[in-house]
Amino acid sequence: MILSAARRRLQSRAFAEEQAPEMVASRSFWADAGQRFMRNRMAIFSVGMLGLLILFSIFGNLFSRWSFEEIDWNVLGRIKEDGGPSLENGHWFGVDELGRDLYARVVQGTRTSLLVGFIAGPVSVLLGATLGALSGYYGGRFDRTVLGAYTIWLAIPYIIFFVVWQAFFGRSMSQMIMVIILVNWTAGLLIVRGQVMMLKNREFVDAARMLGMSDTKIIFRHLAPNVLWVVVIYTSLVIPEVIMMESLVSFLGVGIQEPNTSIGALLSQGASTMTFGTLWQLGFPAAIFVIAQVSLFYIGDGLRDALDPKER
């Protein structure tokens, strides 16, 4: 008896209207979110840092005395002694193991890595999140198929995948971005799926259904805002991963080619000699990586807070 009373209550028009404020994303949602984000000082500061990084990668060359591929024959062979950062010879960041100007290489590498990271990262997560949302919402056979594909994809030997890709499609920047997206499309899938599985049985979704909304509308209008926080945080986790993955992909011959470089490549070169007294080779690329990553952290958190539909 109590049950049927509850059900009656659930089906009542009044209930649906009571839930409405929670389910309907108000018109001013994005405006509010923007305002909330602007109030977050760390986030705004981080946006500024990221902006500076982008400017550095585009215009940094103007302040460089060397090109990124030129070998400074004067320091080659004496890197440890003479290759450190110096104002005199114009190697602001020192030189790499081959006597090439590290400043110019960091500028060039930042450009590559930001491009790869900021395209491949968000696209991968959006793909994964969309599939995850659909999978969680519809469940059943569709869900099992997606999970099957997910399982298979994680288990595929990805190095072989890169090698095959290289053999068939060769090398270029766009090939590389595409390959990275293909390998990462599972990013965030499970977690969004889980969130949607929980949310889809909430009262406000039932209510939306009762109001006759289509599935697509429910997913993108009402469920999406509630999982945006996952997407945002996940993206900020995936971007650095993608930046590191780039160096592996290039190593296997799909991505960029020496003398071009990337932050990932510079980092692994620097790390391989970090115990031999040429720490600047790790330090400067690492500093760029840290700035990018820390900015992403705070921007991610700021966005999460701003987009939280409950913080109104």
């Binding site: 099957g148 595929i156 030997p157």
Partner: peptide, 24 residues
């Protein structure tokens, strides 16, 4: 879900098998 194990693994093996042979 458990019933999915066998077909999933089979597809994986077939896919990975041919993929590996495609690698130079």
């Amino acid at each position: 879900r458990l019933l999915m194990v066998v077909p999933t693994l089979l597809i994986l093996v077939i896919f990975a098998f041919y993929l590996m042979r495609l690698a130079p």
